[in-house]
Nucleic acid binder design. Sequence first.
RNA 1: GCCCCGUUCGUCUAGUGGCCUAGGACACCUCCCUUUCACGGAGGCGACAGGGGUUCGACUCCCCUACGGGGUACCA
Length: 499
Amino acid sequence: MTVRVRIAPSPTGNLHVGTARAALFNWLFARQHEGGRFILRVEDTDRERSLPRFEQNIYDGLHALGLQWDEGPDVGGEYGPYRQSERSHLYTQWAEALLATGKAYYSYETDDELEAMREKAKLAGQPFAYRKPSPQILAAQAAEPNRPKSLRFEIPQPYGPVVLDDAVRGAISFDSALLGDFVILKSDGGPTYNFANVVDDSLMAITHVIRGEDHVSNTPRQILLYQAFAQLGSVDGTPCLVTPPVFAHASMILAPDRTKLSKRFGATAVADYIAMGYLPEAFCNFLSLLGWSPPEGQEIGSLQEYAKLFSFERMAQSPAIFETDKLNFLNKHYLKQLSPQEFADVAEPFVKDLPWTEYSAEDKIALLERVREPITLLRELPEALSYFFGPTVAIPQEITESVVNTADGKAVLMAFKVALSANAFDMSSLEAAAASIKAFIPQLAPLKAKAILWPIRAAVSGRTHGADLNAILYYLGPKRVLARVEEALAGKSSPVSVA
RNA sequence: GCCCCGUUCGUCUAGUGGCCUAGGACACCUCCCUUUCACGGAGGCGACAGGGGUUCGACUCCCCUACGGGGUACCA
């Protein structure tokens, strides 16, 4: 049997991290199996809220993460179309098959009437479950003009347990008596989620449904639908699934306050994380670790490696909180792995607006190398590089007071200035700059290296953290170094900061 | 309200009755390395939600409570 899995997002918002993780697990599972297929199906049955730009955002996000799909609206496939809005005729067909065999019936209540029924049940302390009205009532309602008409699936009797044998959570039993006859075709003729989902998964020959825990409670309805279709055997010549797909429900991803991941929490869209400068590899690695654990604690792994290791057994049952600490760590890790050229490539979108004209292409790569180590996010790059540009640099008040304007600081800078003026400080190459620094330090004994290098660093870069000092000196060049030292000594911190 | 699921260090998690004085990773703290900034290395802090059972023995099995989450829609 060929493994066929799917991700079924609805384009009512940008690609959410929860959806991305579901996509990731599905992708992993598909790639683990020879010939496994990963399908993208767009569930745009909510006409009001579904937007093309969201669909595009979902494609972009999935692509950015490297989760390529084998079948989908944009790439086609033999089970298409892959957009639910283009499959209306199928839902109608399958619904009519249910209607014709008495497994479904039309209901005519208005929203207000439905609301009243729920209210009544609530007041009576009874759980509400919609039940088929008597034939008389049904006939009377049907005769009335202007009543909405929706098709409902009738929960089969006798009522009893519906068992979901979840690949992650084990057997979960529901009582079908608690399930109301639910709508499968809305009054506008469109299918509801539960129905379209089952029809499509049947038609697309989906073998495993890997999705979030929020769908667990919906599953008994879907199982009942699968069973009904299995009884039918086929719909218009198309055979139905004999057994439902295997279900695997992943735990939820929660915000740090243990509530649902929402706008209130901050970024929830994959695109936002990419825009901050998280590497797709890091993000995928992180997402994999949320709700799944690799065997033998291999917490750093590529999509390809994890595809080999993935299993439902190692999926967690309890929710995971989305904390960025480990994501940051992973991003640093993957950033470190990159070659200078690769780093320059991924950095480009973030640093393209810097005035690079004063540096050669080679220097640009080298400069990026100089600042990459402490970087967590690529978007920190412009700030980390800022002091390499422009004639002057702004020194924050705090640093001026604590490092530059101290007795030692001034003494160091004076001595440094003298050396510079006398051309006694060679910074014509990185090596020369390093050697010059090494030779310079003893001259100011008994001051320790740190006490000497800090004021210089602060004067030329405006900060106490940054690239290697010899690199800063080399790339800035003698003229600019001297100018910045003089300016620091003059005590006026330039208001001009090049960012 | 009713139904379903869950609860191990701050966070992600390992753990399927004795291997657990509960392991790893991230974060945090300390120390070492170091001409600066970093990197790196070595340590440390830190958890089985609570209560009852079952058992010779429970993180592991059962029950109750608390808390959290999901569902209960003509949203998906």
